[in-house]
Amino acid sequence: MYGWIDTILQGLLLGGLYALFAAGLSLSFGVMRLVNIAHGDFIVLAAFVALVIVQASGVNPLLAMLAVVPVMALVGYLLQRGILNFTLGKDILPPLLVTFGLSIIIQNLLLVGFSADTRKLSAGPVETASIKLGGGLAIGWYPLIVFLAAIAVIAALQLLFARTMLGRAFRATSDDQEAAQLMGIDNRRIYGLAMALAMAIVAVAGVFLAIRTTFTPTIGPDRLLFAFEAVIIGGLGSLWGTLAGGMLLGVAQTIGFKLDPGYGLLAGHLVFLCVLVFRPTGLFARTLD
């Protein structure tokens, strides 16, 4: 019995990481209707940026995150202003094709630069420390920290969107970019800022991923899939829904793994499939478009 509770707890906490994967994807889709196929590869890129910083300076990867976040945000801004803005328009195919191309380019550049060896970042004793809940139950400090970080990121995003002028500009541009220009909003700059913000979250997700598991240059597409599933399960346009979607996906995967190590990913995909069949707008959908 405790075994199952433990499994579900681990799954819920894993959902925090998936919510971090998903938040950036949700943001870029929400503000500019851009589906970033390279999203997972950017998560991996962030992990390698952290690796380089850690190897060069020897700092704890959690501290290195402070440097990875601005680096990735800058990459996001330049990418949007330099390339992706030119792909946006009535046709949704160009951004898909261009980000698909970026995905292949990033994977191959990482392979050239870092080889296909598996890597891992070590954050020290915090990785194995745990809180005893009694009855043989325990939750690890590290998954808890990741989960709390996910809540903090989503709460901050929610606040930004609801309370600040930038958040209003994001929403207005998403509603009607032409009318937004009539308000004096430079939509191309807004898109750049949205991608910078998305990549800042990608940086957080990438560093947490690199500490949690081993990584190679080619694991990006799977992370993209988890992010997609979390967004769709939670419902487009709902940030807290994305967290709930990530948690449901996490629980499904850990239960699947417990039944049989080969069933973990399959169980996650099946839950996703069920949501698509029975509630295609997601569990907490805000917008329909």
Partner: peptide, 15 residues
């Protein structure tokens, strides 16, 4: 702007 309230719509005019 559909996802903004009346006051937010007015406020964004002053962007």
């Amino acid at each position: 702007f559909a996802s903004l309230s009346v006051e937010e719509n007015l406020a964004i005019g002053a962007y």
